[in-house]
Design a protein around this nucleic acid. Structure first.
Lengths: 230, 230
DNA sequence: CAGGCTATTATGTATAGACATAATGAGTCA
DNA sequence: TGACTCATTATGTCTATACATAATAGCCTG
């Protein structure tokens, strides 16, 4: 790593912030000044600062300058899972079973999540992912056929919509949510749980350049733990 | 947005990928060619492509070029929460209550998580975070006094260990886990839930350059949803 | 033909200079 | 006093050029 590379500068600034040479809330020197200090071009310092801002370590505003974030927000990485890979990576055998597949009007709640007019037709697919013969995840998915019309031609008999979409419908934005809830009706039946058992529910909506792709609800039995490393 | 800005170029390329004008696995034109096509400098195209690569839509390799990702493995950002900020950001009033604070030997399970000898002394703090008067999170934390001795001098009467540590003990690594579980004993009592209610449990261990700092178990009542945006 | 060297190529990074844009604050006018 | 205008300032972006670097393909050598 070069002495004046944007990476070196970024690392140096990161160090000053973590060692509290610059306190949270404090305004740090401007790009011009830092460029002089590091003997680099302003564009280089700019790149380093932009990355720090993206990482949440500093906040930048035109005219007022760059300040150290008050609560140095760290970001964790969470890799969006391909269920099959997730299961096979832990040495278990993966099995997939399609439960239902139907093209029909979306319920209002789903249409709202996908930001389409109420009643818009979509593809509704439900299926089950097994790990070593045990139910691992129940997947309840709606696909927006306006954005992913090719999905209409897919049976999902042997390939899960999770896997198919990963390969066929890239996305640029996503919103995840996770929560605990008591198992209810169909979900409890399918997962083989008693009603009220604490299930782990993940929901996800994905978008590509402003157009919604899919909304999925993933239900895991109580033993499931989601792990994230930073 | 300018016609030839890196954002416009990024959006156009994103569109071509989403509309499958360029198929997954396909090599797209080089920076030079795209620069000519868009009437922009190569650096501008480079910036657009780098962002797409960071977003996981394309894969770039020197000499071989840029290809549309086969399995767009994307990583989500998960911001490590400062409970108070999280609550206040949603317009609710925050309230903190210390439940217990004791310096004593760690249970084996905790010592193992913190990677210290069984029986090592640590600071055990339990407390409750309220949002608009409702129990929001029960926090059960062990602090490694070998790495953070200053914590021993802190009463945690008015400032939560979460907040204190964020400001006083930076970390370099962390491992999170999340799961759903039935509420048990003390936790159920404190959160005012019936035994067996589905609670959302987060656990986190943080480290600074190979030395463990703290292990925390955070229990949320069933209504809680954790949201993550990409 | 194996093994290693070399030229080629596409991306990666740095630079100086220029102009764009948002936010601020000072000055102006009613 | 208040509302408006305008200059100032720091960041945001773009360009043209140059050189760095990783990976590949092909060539040479033993």
């Amino acid at each position: 790593m070069q002495r004046n590379s944007f990476k070196a500068i970024r690392a140096e600034l990161e160090m000053r912030i973590s060692k509290r040479l610059w306190l949270p809330g404090e305004t740090i020197p401007g790009e011009e000044a830092l460029a002089v200090e590091f003997g680099a071009a302003r564009a280089t310092v700019n790149r380093a600062l932009q990355e720090l801002a993206r990482a949440g370590l500093v906040e930048r505003k035109r005219k007022s300058g760059t300040r150290v974030a008050l609560h140095p927000v760290r970001e964790a990485r969470y890799v969006i899972p391909l269920v099959r890979a997730e299961i096979e990576a832990s040495g278990m055998t993966y099995q997939y079973r399609l439960i239902g597949r139907r093209e029909c009007g979306m319920p209002d709640a789903v249409a709202a999540r996908l930001d389409v007019a109420p009643g818009t037709r979509g593809l509704h697919v439900t299926c089950l992912h097994h790990a070593d013969g045990q139910a691992y995840q129940y997947e309840d998915r709606w696909i927006n056929l306006d954005t992913v019309p090719q999905a209409g031609a897919e049976s999902f008999d042997t390939i899960s919509p999770n896997e198919w979409l990963v390969s066929n419908a890239p996305f640029s934005q996503a919103r995840f949510s996770f929560r605990a809830a008591p198992a209810e009706g169909i979900e409890a039946d399918i997962l083989g749980l008693e009603a009220g058992a604490a299930v782990f529910i993940g929901e996800r909506v994905t978008w590509l350049s402003g157009r919604s792709i899919t909304f999925v609800r993933m239900v895991h039995p109580p033993s499931h733990t989601m792990i994230m490393d930073v």
